[in-house]
């Protein structure tokens, strides 16, 4: 599903040029659950931004579903993104001015789903995430765990092929964190590919494979569970 080759990304200020990604290469198969780990500043988030088509690589190749997307302009990336990718963030990133229902509805609005269909799908996913009773509340009125469940609901409402999770349990206590990890695992079992950036070894164990990074490069890769029958090419 994803194949990156020699991916590069720099951040330049007036005086220094920092290398965030240094010729990084790996692949992710459809249906896989991959955890990316590494110390702060190793390039995990940069990688996630590029994989999520939020940012452009400065060099290398990024093939998504068989299409080279490295040179895409913002409009094309937005188009590809809204139909294929869901996001879960550490800080939830719910819009404070919208209710739970409206937050979850947002991706459907941008993909042009009709209002009746939107309501049906949002209700379904809220039901599934057991947050239906909070549908009219605003984010500030929810606990962290509930907010992250809303965020997950929003990430999956569009049935994306890929979910990118950036420290999804970072702001949660352990029981709420486990709940979210269980949710992600369920989604993965239902067929969604998941790439998760995390600091937590505990969370990483939920994945099939852990990629460890340092200074923008991949250092090791442990396969925890052989993913279905497919052979991993490293």
């Amino acid at each position: 599903m994803i194949k990156i080759t020699d991916l590069e990304k720099y951040y330049a200020t007036e005086e220094v040029r920092t290398i965030a990604l240094n010729k990084l290469s790996f692949q992710v198969q459809e249906g896989e659950f991959v955890a990316v780990m590494g110390p702060s500043g190793c390039g995990k988030s940069t990688l996630l931004n590029i994989l999520g088509l939020l940012d452009d690589p400065d060099g290398g190749s990024f093939i998504f579903n068989g299409i080279e997307v490295a040179g895409f302009n913002e409009r094309k990336r937005a188009d590809l993104r809204k139909h294929n990718i869901g996001f879960v963030f550490q800080s939830f990133n719910l819009i404070d001015e919208l209710t739970v229902f409206e937050n979850v509805e947002l991706p459907l609005i941008y993909t042009g789903v009709k209002p009746a269909e939107r309501k049906k799908r949002v209700d379904e996913v809220l039901e599934k995430m057991q947050i239906m009773h909070r549908r009219k509340h605003f984010p500030q009125q929810l606990s962290g765990g509930q907010q992250q469940r809303v965020a997950v609901a929003r990430a999956v409402v569009n049935n994306p092929k890929l979910i990118l999770a950036d420290e999804p349990t970072g702001n949660l206590d352990s029981s709420n964190g486990n709940e979210v990890m269980d949710l992600l695992t369920e989604l993965n079992e239902a067929g969604t590919t998941i790439i998760m950036v995390t600091h937590s070894e505990h969370d990483a164990k939920y994945s099939h494979r852990i990629i460890r990074m340092l200074d923008g490069q991949k250092v090791t890769e442990n396969v925890l569970t052989e993913y279905k029958s497919k052979t991993l090419e490293v």
Partner: peptide, 15 residues
């Protein structure tokens, strides 16, 4: 933040 979220969810600049 709102803009970031909206863009991530697929909103175009024009929208």
């Amino acid at each position: 933040k709102e803009i970031g979220v909206r863009k991530t969810m697929g909103s175009s600049k024009r929208q």
